[in-house]
Design a protein around this nucleic acid. Structure first.
Lengths: 142, 142
DNA sequence: TATAGTTTTATAATAATTCTAATTTAAGGA
DNA sequence: TCCTTAAATTAGAATTATTATAAAACTATA
């Protein structure tokens, strides 16, 4: 099954109105594991969908992450990225190239700390220099 | 010892030039555990220091976190907050009131995943509804 | 106290995201 | 299939957080 058909199926299953932008954007996230920003999603889709607007990409990613169908990741530089993989995992942010990489990492039992709090999701983000940038000498202070 | 004297001492120790804005801002972070943004730091300090500029707060917090004297936290809404506590701990972000709370949480051995990567820091951020907002009924969908 | 280099300041510029109001669309019922 | 209604999309303006710039002020050292 292709990504757009899968997106349509998952939207129906979640009882979310199926629209062209939602299918396109959700399908894109299901088939690209690159943690794109809204801008990047928009740039990738607009050539084949000239009427798509950037505002819709913001609206749709917002809706999808609210509904738990995709994951929102806030990078240390403050930009928001989206991830079609919803199983728990962590991210590694390269301070040089600013890319996000997946890392395995178990979920924790962190929250006896704040009794009464309702935990919706948890994000683990490491910062540093990815193998490529580190080997190019882009390490902190020397 | 008061916070500004402590800030001065720590700056000297780290071999960082001691300036008025640095002492003020670092001192503020050492004595306030509220995870303020640059804007909040600026607003708190400007009354008693009218010549201080917001740009300096950005410059100084940048410098301090680069040098590891304070911790930078990027909240899920993309805003950057600073924390004078540098020991490892996690944060809980309330989706309603947008405050950050400290949570205990051990550091992990996450990084066998990316051989060759240089890890600089690690951030664990949970999202949800804090006890106060949750009890006021601000839970997700119902 | 003079100097050199760094930091700060004020302001302008940029980038990411949100808001607004008009238009279009999806889904269910006649 | 056509109508209706609420919801979603669009384009563009507005807002917010942050970064850049260039001149003035300050720190540390000689």
């Amino acid at each position: 099954m292709n990504a757009e058909a899968e997106a349509t199926r998952l939207l129906r299953e979640a009882d979310i109105r199926v629209t062209v932008p939602r299918v396109l954007i959700f399908g894109y996230l299901l088939s690209h594991k690159t943690h794109p920003t809204c801008e990047q999603i928009y740039n990738s889709l607009k050539a084949s969908n000239p009427t798509l607007s950037l505002a819709s990409v913001y609206n749709v990613t917002d809706k999808l992450s609210e509904e738990g169908l995709v994951k929102q990741i806030t990078a240390p530089d403050g930009t928001r990225h989206y991830d079609g993989i919803t199983e728990f995992h962590g991210h590694f942010y390269c301070l040089d190239c600013r890319n996000l990489f997946d890392i395995n990492c178990k979920d924790h039992e962190l929250f006896e700390e704040l009794p009464g709090a309702v935990v919706v999701s948890c994000e683990v983000t490491a910062r540093g220099y990815c193998p490529k940038c580190a080997s190019a000498g882009k390490k902190p202070r020397g």
